[in-house]
């Protein structure tokens, strides 16, 4: 039987997520796998693709009015790119949009990034169910 779409806190619309790969990193498997998992959980995932600048990402998030931004990065440039995304969200008065991330991010960096405001960070081998549950939680709605 088909599941009903996962509604977000905003009303009866499905949770919307922007999935983006910031910087020059070409590893896109993780981003695609996570995008599909979120879709299968009833979410609308806008896939922005590779080589996105923080400016591209924040503008897309504003136009698409997403609940969440998912950043996938395996290149090591997260300490530069993630804080910039957070800062731009603030200047666009869009800080209600929450950011979570995954890829190759050392624990030490992950701790710092979470302090700055990245809501959750997942490394290789994380189960897709954990990621789906976290997305639902962040978007402010329990799974039904």
């Amino acid at each position: 039987m088909p599941n009903s779409p996962t509604p977000s806190a905003k009303g009866k619309r499905p949770i919307r997520v922007l999935m983006a790969k910031p910087g020059l990193d070409g590893h896109d498997r993780g981003a695609k796998v996570v995008a599909r998992a979120l879709r299968d959980a009833g979410m609308e995932v806008i896939y922005a693709g590779l080589r996105q600048t923080p400016e591209d990402i924040v503008e897309a998030a504003v136009e698409e009015d997403v609940d969440l931004i998912g950043l996938s990065i395996l290149s090591g440039a997260h300490m530069v790119l993630f804080p910039r995304v957070l800062q731009l969200l603030k200047t666009r008065k869009a800080s209600e949009i929450k950011v979570f991330a995954g890829g190759i991010i050392p624990d030490e960096d992950a701790r710092k990034l979470k302090q700055m405001g990245i809501r959750a960070i997942f490394g290789p081998g994380t189960s897709l169910q954990t990621i789906v549950d976290t997305a639902r939680q962040l978007a402010g709605k329990r799974a039904s």
Partner: peptide, 27 residues
């Protein structure tokens, strides 16, 4: 939208290459 989950992957944006600060486009 997927008839099974109600979700969707919306991938058209991938092809769009534009200046994010340009106010003359809204996608």
């Amino acid at each position: 939208s997927s008839p099974f989950s109600g979700g969707a992957v919306l991938g058209d944006r991938v092809r769009i290459d534009r200046d994010p600060s340009d106010p003359s486009v809204f996608f």
